[in-house]
Each structure stands twice: as structure tokens, then as C-alpha cells.
Design a protein around this nucleic acid. Sequence first.
DNA 1: GTCTATACGTAGATAGAC
DNA 2: GTCTATCTACGTATAGAC
Lengths: 199, 199
Amino acid sequence: MSAVTSPLVWEHVQPAAARRLLTGAIDAFAERGFQATTTRDIASRAGMSPAALYVHYPSKERLLFEISLYGHRAALDVLRAAGTDGSPEERLRGMVAAFTAWHAEHHTIARVVQYELAALTPEHLAEVAVIRRAISAEVEQVLADGVADASFAVDDPPGTTLAVLSLAIDVARWYTPHRGDPVALGALYADLAHRMVQT
Amino acid sequence: MSAVTSPLVWEHVQPAAARRLLTGAIDAFAERGFQATTTRDIASRAGMSPAALYVHYPSKERLLFEISLYGHRAALDVLRAAGTDGSPEERLRGMVAAFTAWHAEHHTIARVVQYELAALTPEHLAEVAVIRRAISAEVEQVLADGVADASFAVDDPPGTTLAVLSLAIDVARWYTPHRGDPVALGALYADLAHRMVQT
DNA sequence: GTCTATACGTAGATAGAC
DNA sequence: GTCTATCTACGTATAGAC
């Protein structure tokens, strides 16, 4: 199974009750947003009483932080795995295809990752911001490599980096399964991104 | 003053107290989100007590709806004004430049327009959805015109329409004034969008 | 049209039994 | 580790005086 279609795996979250709370919180936060989600809603999705949540997590925000941190790490891993080998064109195409498909395939957690940052504490936000900068750095580097070997023509590297990432990130906003196959979308976006930078 | 830099004007909202509530709500909803914003916060931004809000608006949701409706109409107007004349390339560039610059210049209301749809009642959502479809139709048409006269090469017109709009819409998520001039950003994005479709 | 006071519901989180 | 019961705070919205 390729990185593009790898599922998110939650076996490392133990015990099972903590895992049910986490996955229930992802669904609830993605559907309704962090602020509109109640601890009662999360607990009932996990089949338990509101009080039981606090045995596993000290607060609703902590649940969000664990989701956000894990989601950011997963997105960075997918991007790096897809952009390691080949020419700048191959790496850019691989990165955009994989990062886009990840946002479609995992649009629930991607929505939490991309749209609930403001609900994190400043300390927790700083921690995920490190990962966000690493994501940007990967794209910026492949564009620089393509400019260096003259396979890309890029007028504004920081602006183009932001645009390429932005295109993939916004998938989390609008994607639903009826809008098509994540891998096909990734292929389209890889092509559009390459067109943005080709000589 | 061009459509790209035209300010949003609120003189039509009367009396002044209703206007202060509306603009205060835009700032609050953009900063914190609809759910996290309290009627007390909106009222205090307008310099009045929580109860006074209900003289002007029957609910917090109604305030959101009026903001969302007006914002959607403004965005559609800007898109249409910029995409009326010229070749498909000129129209596409004009539309992307103007729509992008609008999302940067008016990123507060744009954030409400793009990210608070889920907080509208089903009836109010249906009303703004009409405007959203009109926005998509404008872009889809210019791509079709460019394909028809062979100035564009587009493999997947609906997917590319979505991508072009998505790029501009996502500006509302990340833009802050320190990230540069809205008009310069519009020019960059117009170029990137044209590269996506050129033969 | 704005105020103070308040009704009413529900939120996050805790106490203590089992 | 889960439950029931509950605390305390705060949310939207209303009542009624001025």
C-alpha cells in the first residue's frame, strides 16, 4: 500500500476507550468545529458518560492537541515519503499528489488540523507550528532545486510555495467522498502544480 | 478606484447602531469563529449592552446571515466586474487577480463567508449557496471559452475550476496584512492560474 | 433604543460510590 | 475505569423600566 492511500492507524493510543474518545472527537470536531462540540457529544460517541472522558484526557483542548499533533506528523510523513527520490519535477509531483490525496482521504482529521489551530493553547500551537514550518520547507526546497537545475521557472518562490500548499490544504474544506477518488485528485493537482512552475 | 481595491461600504445598514453591531460581529466571527463569539462580545464591540443587540437583530445567526449574504454578493460582483471584457486569458487573469485580492483585502469578512457556512440555518445556507454556484459558473464559463477558442488546454474543467477558486479562497485562511500587498498577490495568482490552463 | 435584571438552558469539569 | 449526581460559570434571549 502506497503512502498516498495509507490509512491512519490509532493502535498506539491505549487503552481502547482513549482511542474511541479520540476518533469520536475527530469526527465531532470535523463536523461541527471544536467550539460547537461538547464533551458530552464526544463521550457519547465513545459510548461512555461525560465524566469518563476526564480519566483519559484532562481537558477538551488536550484531546484537540493530540489530534492536531498526530495529524500534522502524519501529513509531514506523507509529504516527505513522496518527495525523496528523483528529479525536482518527480519530487514535486509526488509531494503534491500525496499531500493532496492525504487531505482528501483523511478530510476529517485534515479539517481539524487545518481549521482548529485557533482553539489550541499558545504552547500547543507553538508545537504544531514547528511541524507546519517543516512542511513548507519541504516544498520550498524542491522548488529551489528545480530553479537551480533550470527545470523550473519560479518568479516568487515563497509565494509559489504557499500557493502549492494552499491548493492541497483547501481540499480539506470542500472534499467529500462523492467528489471523486483522492488519488485521481492528487494526480490532477500534481499536474496543475507542475504547470505553475514549468519553464 | 478599481474593483480590486474597492472597500466594503456599510452605509446601507441603518441605523448606525445596527452597523456597529454588524462590523463588530464581522471582526469577532473572523477572529474567534461564530460559535466562540458571544452576543456580549459583539454588543460590547458596538459599545452597548447585550440586550440592545436584539432590538436590531433577532438572533446571533441572523447577524451571521446578513454578513454572509452581503459578503457573498460583494465577492460575486468583484468577480463579474473583472471578468467581463477581453480574451479568455484576459478575463481569467482579471477574475483571479480581483477575486484573490478581494480575499486578501477583505480577509476578515472573507473568513466569515468561507468558513462559517455550517453555522447558518438550512434556509439561509440555501440562499448563499445560490451565489456560490454563480461564482463557480463564472470561472467554469471562462475556462470553457478558452478551450473553445483553443487558447486554453484543460483536461478536467470542473476540477480545474474548483482548483482556481480554491487557490483564491484559501487566501482568507492564511492572509494577514504583513504578508504583502493584496494587488501583488492577485497578480501572482493570476499568473499561476493562467499557467494551469495555458496550451 | 438603551438600560438593568434575570430566566432558562447547557457548558466544562469534579466528587464520590461502585 | 465507569457511573450518577452535581458544581459553577456562562451562553442566548427576554422582561420591563426609562
